[in-house]
C-alpha cells in the first residue's frame, strides 16, 4: 500500500458498469516526508474518505476490486483506510522481545 492524500474527486458518467455507484477520488501518493510521490491517480473509495484526508491506497487490482465489492471488474486502485497517525520511530521504542 501507499500513503496518499485525497486531493479531489472525479465525475464520470460514461464508464464501465462496475464503476457505477462508487465514488472516484483523485489521490496523490506521498513519501513519508509528505512530499509528492509520482503523479496523482484515480482510486475508488471504500471507506468514505474525504478530500484532504491522508489515506491508505492499495494499488493492485484484486485487493482494490474486493475492497469495493466489485469482483472481476476493471479496478486497480482503491482507498482502503483513513490514516490517523504515522509513528515512524514507534518500532524503535518497542522492547526487542516484541520486535520479531
Amino acid at each position: 500500500m501507499l500513503i496518499a492524500r485525497v486531493i479531489g474527486e472525479m465525475v464520470s458518467t460514461e464508464k464501465h458498469p462496475s464503476h457505477v455507484g462508487r465514488k472516484a477520488l483523485v489521490v496523490q501518493p506521498l513519501d513519508l516526508d509528505g512530499t509528492n510521490r509520482g503523479d496523482p491517480v484515480i482510486a475508488f473509495d471504500a471507506v468514505d474518505a474525504g478530500v484532504g484526508d491522508q489515506v491508505l491506497l492499495v494499488t493492485e487490482g484484486f485487493s482494490a476490486m474486493t475492497s469495493v465489492q466489485r469482483p472481476e471488474s476493471p479496478i486497480d486502485m482503491a482507498v482502503i483506510g483513513v490514516i490517523d497517525r504515522i509513528d515512524l520511530d514507534a518500532l524503535a521504542q518497542t522492547p526487542a522481545a516484541h520486535r520479531k
Binding site: I7, M10, S12, E14, K15, H16, V26, G52
Partner: peptide
C-alpha cells in the same frame, strides 16, 4: 484498457 470518460475533475 480505457474504462471511463472523465466529465469533471474537482480539485481542492
Amino acid at each position: 484498457t480505457i474504462v471511463g470518460v472523465v466529465d469533471e475533475l474537482h480539485l481542492c
